[in-house]
């Protein structure tokens, strides 16, 4: 897990100037803060630059910093198979959160982004098929946000839930491919 901060730093400043903030290495992974509008360009740069080749997207994850502002964050973990480096990209987002999709850069981003949308309501612009992935269509709210109760809302199936509007039920009849 060798990190080459000087190399990253030079290459990235040369291309992006001050737009990308270098947060240094934390526990063996180099971290960059990127504004949402630059995310696709930055990811494509990391993937396609011959000296970096971050061709493997490990993970995309949403974070809710409630009540801190700006509230949301999208975190990307990239891996370079040829160089065996890892890098983390962080992208702070306002409320409602939205940023461009990187599904055009790595196809694997498709489901990761759907998950972040489902759990945090982060809208990825230009995603080919942004549907809920874990919860059913018609579910209200984004369950992993900090203001969503852990036990959900009370109804017959869940007598321990919080007081509130009872959740909708999944519909078995939905069977068409959108």
């Amino acid at each position: 897990m060798s990190v080459e901060p000087s190399l990253y730093h030079a290459l990235i400043t040369e291309r992006f100037g001050e737009a990308i903030e270098d947060l240094g290495a934390a526990h063996g992974i180099h971290v960059f803060a990127v504004p949402p509008e630059k995310i696709v360009e930055f990811c494509r740069f990391l993937k396609e630059h011959p000296a970096l080749e971050f061709n493997f997207l490990s993970d995309i994850c949403g974070v809710d910093h409630y009540p801190e502002m700006p509230r949301f964050e999208a975190v990307y973990h990239l891996y370079s198979l040829p160089n065996k480096w890892r890098v983390r990209i962080k992208c702070r987002l306002g409320d409602p959160p939205q940023l461009p999709s990187v599904a055009g850069v790595w196809r694997t981003a498709n489901w990761h982004e759907r998950e972040a949308w489902d759990m945090y309501g982060i809208r990825f612009e230009g995603h080919p098929d942004l549907r809920r992935i874990y919860m059913w269509e018609g579910f209200e709210g984004f369950p992993q946000r900090k203001d969503f109760p852990l036990r959900g809302y009370k109804d017959k199936l869940n007598p321990f839930g919080a007081e509130g509007p009872p959740p909708t039920q999944p519909d078995l009849a939905t069977r068409d491919i959108p």
Binding site: Y134, P143, L150, R151, G152, L157, N158, F160, G161, P167
Partner: peptide, 8 residues
């Protein structure tokens, strides 16, 4: 799993 997703 006493959570929003699981039937108790």
């Amino acid at each position: 799993y006493n959570t929003y997703a699981v039937v108790q």
